[in-house]
Computed example of a mutant assay.
Amino acid sequence: MSALPERSDGPAVPKVAVVSGGSRGLGRTLVERLLADGWRVATFSRSANAFTTAMTEEYPGSFHWERADLGEPDAMRVFVRTVGRLFGRVDLLVNNAGVLHQELLLTTPPKQIDSLVTNNLTSPILLTQACARLMTRHGGGNIINISSINAIRGFRGVSVYAAAKAGLDGFSRSLARELGTFNIRVNSIVPGFFDSDMTADVTERNREKIQHRTPLGRLGTAEEIADAILFLTSARAHFVTGQSLVIDGGITC
C-alpha cells in the first residue's frame, strides 16, 4: 500500500492520517505501520508517553502528537485545525480511541452514562465532521470507525458502551451515503476480543472462557485488527463503503 499517489501536476504528496488514541495499543500499532508506509500521521491522547516522544524524534515533519481528551468534544475541532495547518489535508481518519466502563445499568450514575456516550460516540462524530470537511477540499478520503462486538452481541455490564458503539456503526452507514458523492468512504471495524489495554484486566478464567467460545480458539492481536483497517485504506477496497467488518475469530457467528 503506497501513501505516495502519482500526480500529474508535480511531485507525489504524502497522504495524511489522523488516528485518535495513537499512543498505545491498536492506535500505536496503526501509527507505527502508517509511518513506516510513508504517511504523515497526526494523533492525540490524554498524555504523552515514551512512544509519542520517540516518534516525534524519529519522524520530524511526519508525526504530530498533541494532548486532547475525548471527554472534551470541542478539543476535536481544535485538533483538526492544527492538523490542517501543519499538513494541509486529511486523507484518512481512524476513530480508534474509546473508553470502556463495566457496570450494571441499574447502578450507573448519570454522569458516567454521559461520559461513555461522549467518549465513544459524540466526540468521534465531531472529529469525523471536522476531518470530513478537510477531505472534501482535497478530492476525498477514508473514514474508519472502530466499533466493538458489544454492538452486535449482548454482554452483561456494558449496555451503555454497547449502545454508543452501535450508534457508531449506524453513523458509519448513514455517513457513507452522505459522503459518497465527495469520494469519501466510511466503514466500521468491529473487533472481537484481542490483546489490548481493555482486555488486560480479564482474569485467566474468563480468558479461557472467551477462547473456548471462539471458534479459532484464541484472542486476536492488535496486528490482526490493524491488517483489516489497512485493507480498507488500500486500493483493494476502493469499492467498499458503508460496511461493518467483523474481526472476532468467529465468536459472534
Rank of each mutant, 00 (worst) to 15 (best):
S2F: 11
A3D: 01
L4Y: 10
S8V: 08
G10Q: 09
P11R: 15
A12N: 10
K15T: 03
V16L: 10
V19D: 02
S20A: 04
G22M: 09
G22F: 08
S23K: 05
R24K: 15
G25H: 01
L30I: 11
V31P: 04
V31N: 07
V31I: 05
R33A: 03
R33E: 01
D37S: 15
G38N: 13
W39S: 02
R40A: 09
A42V: 06
A42P: 13
F44R: 12
R46M: 07
A50R: 13
F51Y: 14
F51A: 13
A54S: 15
T56V: 06
Y59N: 13
P60N: 11
W65G: 14
W65S: 14
E72D: 12
M76R: 10
R77V: 03
F79P: 11
V80Q: 00
R85S: 13
R85L: 03
R89W: 05
L92N: 11
V94M: 07
N96T: 02
L100V: 08
L100M: 10
H101T: 09
Q102K: 14
Q102W: 08
E103M: 14
L104S: 12
L105I: 12
L106W: 09
K111F: 07
Q112G: 13
I113Y: 08
N120S: 02
L121W: 01
L121I: 03
S123F: 09
T128W: 03
A132D: 04
L134R: 09
R137S: 12
R137V: 01
H138Y: 12
G140S: 05
G141Q: 02
I143K: 11
I146A: 00
I146T: 04
S147A: 13
S147M: 00
S147F: 00
S148L: 11
S148T: 08
F155H: 13
Y161K: 03
K165I: 03
K165E: 03
S172H: 10
R173L: 12
R177T: 14
E178A: 15
G180P: 04
N183A: 13
N183T: 00
R185M: 00
V186Y: 06
N187Y: 03
V190D: 00
D195T: 12
D197E: 10
T199A: 02
A200Q: 13
D201P: 05
R205I: 06
R207S: 07
E208T: 07
E208S: 12
L216H: 08
G217P: 05
G217N: 04
G217V: 01
A222E: 09
E223D: 12
E223N: 10
I225T: 01
A228K: 08
L232Q: 04
S234W: 06
A237F: 08
V240K: 14
T241S: 15
Q243H: 10
V246Y: 06
G250D: 07
